[in-house]
Simulated assay, not measured.
Amino acid sequence: MNKTIRMLDSRDYPHLEAMDTGIEFDYIPRIFDKLITGNNRLYGLFLDGQMVSMSGYTIYANHYAMLGRLRSDRRFKGNGYATEIVAYVMNEAFKLSNIHWVGANTEEDNLPARRVLEKVSLAPYIALHGAQTEDTSVMESNARPWQPVTDLTRKREWVNKLYAQTGAIFPYECYYPFPGSADLFQDDDLKQWSFYENASGTRFLITKYDQKKYHYLHAVYPWHDMAEQRGLWETIAADYRKLKTLTDDETYIWMDLTKEEIQTLPAGHPFELPTPWILHGMDKATWAEASALA
């Protein structure tokens, strides 16, 4: 039996259609062309010309690669092909000179995917709930919203202090958090994101627009005292109202919250809390060391 792994292109769409993944209404066929161009790559594992497993990566901030789109043909499960394709894709991503970190984000309940990530030595970093709401009024206290921060130097001071210098996990996009580094915070992003400070200059908030299935105001607040900060929720609510005037579809507030942060929310808080996603990953130095020993 001839086994090969290679990068996919537009001519491979029939191979994807022929796979029996058991996934109803899968989004991948709909956006297949996007997943093989730009910052996206897909790879397939073939047996005698038939694709039996698939995975890929997307590059973020030019230095981070997130693995995903793992699909396997049910008729060939139990042979380790999912682990093999993920390991291959991870190595291909790390071979890129600009990539410093490779990871994957998967739902806590997705035990098969978590086992695959463990087998390729991607260690778990953090579990985050993608908390969503349309109304923060129960969190508000009629306080004045925080002051906008427009100075790029001040914005960079905040992200350097809280993320780049500590390596703390930063929610770069909905579903896509990354360990902080100077590379993660590019000037174009900092200019586009909205920053706010409280009156004493001891706390800050980032809000940014994101779109996945729906539109989101993605709010990032890096402390555990969000229920105690007067003006924080008024600031988020004001930006949310502005965003809703610009979108024609469903629009929500999204915050990435740990289980510990959820415990600080008051009873009757407005957030829907879906199953958390667990971020796994590895930096390039660790990968290079492991590769040298293999």
Rank of each mutant, 00 (worst) to 15 (best):
S181R: 12
D151N: 08
A127P: 12
R11C: 12
D187K: 01
C174F: 01
W158R: 06
P14W: 14
Y57S: 08
Y57A: 04
D188R: 14
A290Y: 14
L243C: 03
I262N: 02
K284H: 03
P270T: 00
Y209P: 10
F271Q: 05
G80D: 13
R203P: 07
P145H: 06
D187N: 11
I126E: 15
I262K: 00
N160H: 05
V89S: 02
L47Y: 02
A61C: 00
A104N: 14
A219Q: 06
D151Q: 01
K34W: 10
E289D: 12
M7L: 13
M19Q: 05
A61H: 04
A87Q: 15
H15I: 09
Y172N: 00
L205H: 05
S137T: 12
I85T: 10
K95Q: 03
M66T: 00
N40S: 14
A294F: 15
S137R: 00
I278L: 04
S137H: 06
L279G: 05
D210M: 02
R71V: 09
R154G: 00
R30T: 10
W254L: 11
H280C: 06
L293P: 13
N110W: 13
A168W: 04
Y176H: 02
Y172G: 12
T251C: 15
S53W: 09
S291M: 14
Y216P: 08
A238P: 08
Y64V: 01
L265K: 05
L205K: 03
E24N: 13
A288W: 00
D135F: 09
I169C: 05
V149H: 06
W287V: 05
M282K: 00
W277N: 11
L152R: 01
G231D: 12
K95N: 02
F271M: 02
T106I: 14
K119G: 12
D189Y: 09
E24G: 15
Q50M: 14
R6E: 05
I23F: 11
Y196L: 03
M226N: 01
A87V: 10
T202L: 11
L70W: 05
D109E: 14
A143M: 05
A127E: 12
A87E: 13
Y175F: 08
S121W: 15
L96C: 06
P179A: 11
Y60A: 10
F178T: 00
T58A: 12
G22K: 11
F271W: 12
Y252V: 03
R71T: 10
P14A: 01
N160S: 13
Y27M: 11
Y13R: 11
G167Y: 06
K77C: 15
I126W: 07
T21C: 14
A199H: 13
D109S: 15
M51W: 04
S97D: 00
F46I: 06
W287L: 01
N39R: 02
Y81R: 00
T21H: 08
G38I: 11
G201E: 06
